[in-house]
């Protein structure tokens, strides 16, 4: 009986699914979705999980062979990149002629390890579900807005931006924050909503401190510094970023005015960095840059054991930058 039902439903369910990427949240979501589909097709569907690194070819054969009682099955093979040499041909032989009652789901980190296995699965016609780590800011915004949409809510780009700033980059935490917000507010999310529930900054890097300090915005630099220290950023990379900030401005200023894209090659830095530094360079005199660089070097020593209070050492450097910079804050 079961077999008749599942064969009717099977066109909707792909026989082989390849989850490609190492973003944990997306991988576990893909697994959950596939099992949910299988359960929807056949409530009695059996789900079994294995680790590809320790699975033996014999066990796999048992897992994928037809069951005496019929019924839909989902075999989840985790860490496909770790599959041993003798396991891969067995899987490939199965994929060439899959059992329509079984869904084989393989997760693969997508890196160089076990790449051939992932590629041949794709070539054999596996349904690919991307689960790559999100690296770009815009993609994160898309993820947040998409997450709200998925939960039946709505959210603007500015609200998504605010949420990202407050929660940080971890997708699991972002997803949790989204569902919490939808549950609490009913789904219409704007900047005020985010501001009511979230405050502060989750991730401040040394570079935001340096950017503000070099631009002469002492207040913003101090604020960023304390957020950064508060969230556990080590003072050493902050001090390095401060030195890098002065170095960038000094080199760009010394190169003179010009097209950032043309200067990129000679200065060996990306054009956006040059453009930013060109804006920051206003208000800096050569002598100011010399004393700022000296302050940055002293700061570097202070955070590496030269000073009792490392946070204060950085604070002092920010003030030294402000003093070194002509024109003062704008």
């Amino acid at each position: 009986m079961g077999s008749v039902v599942s064969q009717v439903a099977s066109p909707k369910l792909p026989p082989v699914v390849l989850v490609l990427g190492d973003e944990e949240l997306l991988v576990s979501r893909a697994i959950a979705e596939t099992t949910a589909q299988a359960k929807a097709a056949d409530a009695g569907a059996e789900v079994r999980e294995f680790d590809a690194g320790s699975l033996l070819p014999g066990e796999l054969a048992e897992l994928l062979s037809p069951s005496l009682f019929g019924g839909r099955r989902v075999a989840v093979l985790k860490n496909g990149q770790d599959a041993k040499k003798d396991l891969v041909p067995v899987i490939m032989a199965y994929v060439a002629d899959p059992d329509p009652e079984v869904t084989l789901l393989v997760t693969h980190a997508g890196g160089a390890k076990g790449k051939a296995f992932g590629d041949s699965l794709q070539k054999a016609g596996a349904t690919v579900v991307p689960a790559v780590k999100i690296a770009k800011h815009k993609d994160r915004i898309d993820f947040v807005t998409g997450e709200f949409r998925r939960l039946g809510g709505k959210c603007g780009a500015d609200a998504a931006e605010a949420l990202l700033e407050a929660v940080g980059h971890d997708l699991r935490e972002l997803a949790a924050a989204c569902s919490q917000l939808v549950a609490d507010t009913g789904g219409r999310i704007d900047l005020a909503t985010v501001a009511r529930y979230y405050r502060g900054k989750a991730e401040v890097s040394g570079f935001s401190v340096a950017d503000a300090a070099v631009a002469g915005d002492t207040a913003a630099a101090l604020e960023a510094l304390h957020w950064a220290l508060h969230t556990g950023v080590d003072p050493v990379p902050i001090a390095d970023a401060l030195a890098d900030g002065v170095r960038t401005v000094a080199r760009v200023a010394a190169a003179g005015r010009g097209n950032a894209y043309q200067m990129a090659a000679t200065l060996g830095m990306p054009a956006w960095k040059i453009e930013k530094a060109q804006r920051q360079a206003r208000g800096w005199s050569p002598d100011g840059l010399v004393s700022a660089m000296r302050a940055a070097a002293e700061c570097n020593e202070a955070v590496k054991g030269g000073s009792e209070d490392r946070a204060y050492a950085i604070e002092r450097t920010i003030f030294a930058f402000a003093k070194a910079r002509q024109g003062g804050p704008r």
Binding site: D240, A243, V290, R294, A297, E301, K304, G305, G306
Partner: peptide
């Protein structure tokens, strides 16, 4: 400064300036 573990690059840049 280099003896005190300052990044050599930063120390040398400050010095040359």
């Amino acid at each position: 400064a280099i003896e005190a573990n300052v990044k050599p690059r930063i120390a040398v840049e400050a010095m040359l300036l």
